[in-house]
């Protein structure tokens, strides 16, 4: 969104304060009071935040689990690769 950024005429702090004061005289509860806090809304945010954190941890755990699982498979495959083949004539299976 493009915002106005430059002006030839500057507004002074006094001018701003004056119109703020006018608005307060004119429109009573201006500035408006905020909506009262809602325990229900806060709990909803908190619960969702906790769930998302838990989901992130679970995703990390799963990723780590998969990584370590894959590492195990690779280690096993490597070990199998190093295992002498039957053609070497030295396999314990031969016996």
């Amino acid at each position: 969104m493009k915002l106005e950024t430059d002006f030839d005429d500057e507004i002074t702090d006094e001018e701003l304060a004056k119109i703020e004061s006018e608005l307060m005289d004119l429109a009573g509860p201006f500035p408006l009071p905020p909506t009262p806090p809602s325990e229900q809304r806060m709990q909803s945010i908190l619960q969702r935040a906790k769930l998302e954190a838990l989901a992130a941890e679970a995703a990390d755990f799963t990723r780590d689990g998969v990584t370590s699982g894959l590492k195990g498979v690779i280690d096993t495959l490597l070990a199998l690769g190093e295992k002498p083949s039957p053609e070497d004539g030295d396999s314990p299976d031969k016996d």
Partner: peptide, 25 residues
């Protein structure tokens, strides 16, 4: 918050308050 210059922000707020005053009246 608006990523704007202070002078521009002042002017924008001033104009917005003037408009609010007009609408309210």
């Amino acid at each position: 918050v608006l990523d704007a210059k202070l002078s521009a922000t002042k002017m924008r707020l001033y104009r917005a308050m003037e408009k609010f005053k007009d609408v309210y009246l």
